[in-house]
């Protein structure tokens, strides 16, 4: 007698008819999640199986034993160590500097607008929409002339420049939510514009910084095109170039490639997990509102 069905709206909450939807949705989501995880699991499996096992078609079987040889190979390979160092040497400064430049731009567009600043802002954020190939050749020529080809500098510089539009957009949107009265109050207290930025606007925009660190770090760390164009020698290669290059070094090296892919993905995963909470918040506050 417990589940007598009452017409809608008249019954006590405990007598609500059974609602199947959450269960259905849960099952759908679970199936999708398995499908979604499959490729990633593939990488994971490949890294702990021998290339021979994979070649025999056993990549997708659940591993019965763990083979650590791929990781040992990778970690003992000095050029692979170099790939990681190079990528870090590119990603960290490029991330920090591009965000810094975005902060400076964004502050002016949000808090110190001038005649024509709206148009300038549009010009800058239009930069986001251009395929990078458009500026590839002249940049190649420019860096060649400056003897920057085959140096990490070339990649750092271009990532700083390519990051300016998105960093400017997000910072401007975020700074715009900081009330003008706060800036004015600080100025009357004797703060310079620089102090308003560093002591008021930035501390209030930490979610935006989290978003940008996540986006820029991920994008620069994972980038393939620019190092492909600007880097030629093996000592200067980034991790992503390295993965592709492994194909050349060993004839078939699935296991080693899998292990390196896994290691190469860890930094971006860590950054994302670290900033996840702020990332979502930052997206809600700064980005979704356009």
């Amino acid at each position: 007698m417990a589940d007598i069905q009452l017409p809608h709206g008249t019954g006590a909450p405990s007598a609500k008819p059974f609602n199947p939807w959450p269960v259905v949705i849960f099952i759908i989501l679970s199936i999708l999640a398995v499908l979604f995880l499959a490729p990633t699991v593939g990488v994971l499996f490949s890294s702990i199986k021998t290339t021979k096992e994979i070649a025999f078609g056993r990549l997708w079987d659940f591993p019965t034993s763990v083979y650590w040889g791929n990781f040992a190979d990778i970690l003992s390979n000095p050029s692979v160590q170099g790939y990681f160092v190079n990528t870090l040497l590119i990603t960290v400064p490029a991330t920090v500097i591009s965000i810094t430049l975005g902060i400076l731009n964004g502050y002016v567009f949000a808090k110190l607008p001038f005649r024509g600043s709206g148009i300038l802002f549009l010009v800058i954020i239009s930069g986001m929409f251009f395929p990078p190939q458009v500026i590839l050749i002249p940049l190649f020529r420019l860096f060649n002339g400056l003897h920057l080809i085959d140096t990490l500098w070339s990649v750092i510089f271009i990532h700083i420049a390519m990051g300016i539009p998105i960093c400017t957009l997000l910072m401007r949107n975020f700074f715009a939510t900081v009330p003008n009265a706060l800036r004015e109050a600080a100025i009357l207290e004797g703060a310079s514009e620089w102090q308003v930025l560093t002591k008021i606007a930035l501390p209030l925009s930490l979610p935006a910084l989290a978003v940008l660190v996540t986006l820029q770090f991920t994008w620069i760390w994972n980038d393939f095109l620019w190092p492909l164009i600007f880097i030629q020698s093996d000592e200067k290669r980034t991790v992503m170039l390295g993965i592709v290059n492994l194909k050349g070094q060993y004839s078939v090296a699935w296991g080693v490639q899998g292990a390196l892919s896994l290691l190469a993905s860890l930094p971006t995963l860590i950054v994302f997990l670290f900033f996840q909470k702020y990332f979502i918040k930052g997206m809600t506050m700064g980005a979704v509102k356009g």
């Binding site: 999640a33 025999f56 994972n222 993965i243 892919s261």
Partner: peptide, 26 residues
């Protein structure tokens, strides 16, 4: 569902090459 975003195009490409692999691909 968010996880793949953290992966690079190289890693993703690489992985899906294995998925589409004719002999033992998923």
């Amino acid at each position: 569902f968010y996880l793949p975003i953290c992966l690079s195009a190289v890693v993703v490409g690489q992985t899906w090459v294995w998925i589409y692999q004719p002999d033992w691909g998923l």
